[in-house]
């Protein structure tokens, strides 16, 4: 207890991690306030690029990166940014990191960049990022913001991977490009079509919510 208090008084980066309630900032994004399954934010990328696990993973990581970097910068500058121009500043910062990840992705793989297409640029308008900037990073310390961004980013990636995984396994008989189903596997064509995204998301929401209801009762 004394250690925690001591750390708190320092208000440093490490203390935030050691601080018990802050660890909760991380967990909440992954599970309790999962951006896709609980907050139902960022539906456009979660439906559009989740037709394969690889695309979903790339999209999730790209968003997580933008989220992390923008949260850090916004939280660093939170006292410096005047209230009146805060949204403009947040968008500017977010757009910058989207451009950065756009270049980085091209440097890693042109094919991947092409399969994600315009959705990389559209990370700018992903409401998860702006909502975390406005609701969290602009009011909290850098350490907490990092944890929040990591939690939310991992939560988003996890959700996308779930949707993408189900759609790829049923729709193409493979996972992350690795075909493990026998040749005679009947592919569910609907799963690679946009309709499959809606079906899968709805089904996962159903499962997630039934878990939640059970936990609340217990």
């Amino acid at each position: 207890m004394s250690v925690i208090n001591q750390n708190k008084s320092e208000k440093g980066f490490l203390s935030s991690i050691a601080d018990h309630p802050s660890t909760d900032e991380f967990i909440k994004g992954v599970w309790r306030e999962n951006p896709v399954f609980v907050q139902v934010l960022g539906m456009c990328p979660s439906l559009a690029v989740s037709n394969s696990a690889k695309n979903a993973l790339a999209m999730g990581l790209a968003t997580a990166f933008v989220l992390l970097m923008s949260n850090i910068l916004i939280s660093l500058l939170r006292d410096f940014i005047p209230k009146q121009v805060r949204i403009a500043s947040y968008i500017l910062i977010i757009a910058t990191f989207v451009t950065v990840i756009d270049y980085a992705m091209q440097a890693i793989s042109i094919e991947l960049h092409k399969s994600l297409g315009a959705f990389i640029a559209l990370i700018v308008v992903n409401c998860i990022i702006l909502s975390r900037a406005e609701a969290f990073a602009s009011k909290n310390t850098v350490g907490k913001s990092i944890l929040d961004a990591l939690g939310m980013g991992i939560g988003f990636t996890f959700a996308l991977l779930c949707i993408g995984g189900v759609r790829e396994i049923l729709g193409s008989g493979s996972f992350l490009g690795f075909e493990f189903m026998p040749d005679s596997f009947e592919k569910w064509v609907i799963m690679v079509l946009p309709a499959g995204g809606f079906f899968t998301l709805a089904f996962l929401l159903l499962i997630f919510n039934s878990f939640k209801i059970k936990n609340n009762r217990a």
């Binding site: 009947e186 569910w188 064509v189 609907i190 799963m191 079509l193 309709a195």
Partner: peptide, 10 residues
């Protein structure tokens, strides 16, 4: 309709 979209060949 679901079957038609999912298994168009069979």
């Amino acid at each position: 309709a679901f079957l038609q979209a999912t298994f168009p060949v069979p």
